[in-house]
Amino acid sequence: MNVTITVNGEKTSHEVEDRTLLVHHLRDAVGLTATNIGCDTSTCGSCTVLLNGESVKSCTVLAAQVDGDEIQTLEGLTGEDGEMDAVQNAFQQKHALQCGFCTPGMVMAATSLLRENPDPTEDEIRMALKGNLCRCTGYHNIVQAILTAAEDAR
C-alpha cells in the first residue's frame, strides 16, 4: 500500500508492505536512522517519535496507521544550521547520555513531556520517563537535563 507521511516537515510517500512497522519505515524507507529499536515489546522507548506532536513508540505503530499524519524524529529537532534545541543542549550540558542508544527516544519523550507540562517536578519527570529505559546513566543526569531544559525555557 502507499503511505504518505510528513516527516520532520517534509512530505514522504512510499509503497510499503501492510505490516511495515513505523520504526522500520522511518529508518529504511525514509532513511532517518536516529530512531532505534531496543526491545520489540513497546517497553524500552528507544523508538519514541512524535506523532502529531505527541510521543509514541514507533515499534508498536504501523506505518499504515499514520498515513496522512505528521511525524517528528530526533533529526527534526535540530535547527537548519545544525544547532541543537534546548532539550538536546541540556542533554549535552548535563551529560545525560553515554552510549547514546536510548537518547533519541529519550529526547523525544522529554520533548513531548515539556510540551504537555512545561514545568515538571523531578517526580513528574521520573514518572513521565518510565517508558524509556536507559542502561548507562541511572537516569540521574537525564532528570537533571530535563529540569534544566524546562528552566531554560522559562
Binding site: 536512522t33 530512531t35 532505534n36 533529526e75 541543537m84 547514546g100 542508544f101
Partner: peptide, 21 residues
C-alpha cells in the same frame, strides 16, 4: 568538560551497526 561526542549523538544519532549504510 562536556562531551565532544554528544552533538552527533544528539542531532543525527550515532551510527550503530544497524545504521550502517
Amino acid at each position: 568538560v562536556v562531551r565532544t561526542e554528544d552533538p552527533r549523538l544528539l542531532t543525527t544519532g550515532a551510527t550503530y551497526l544497524e545504521d550502517l549504510r
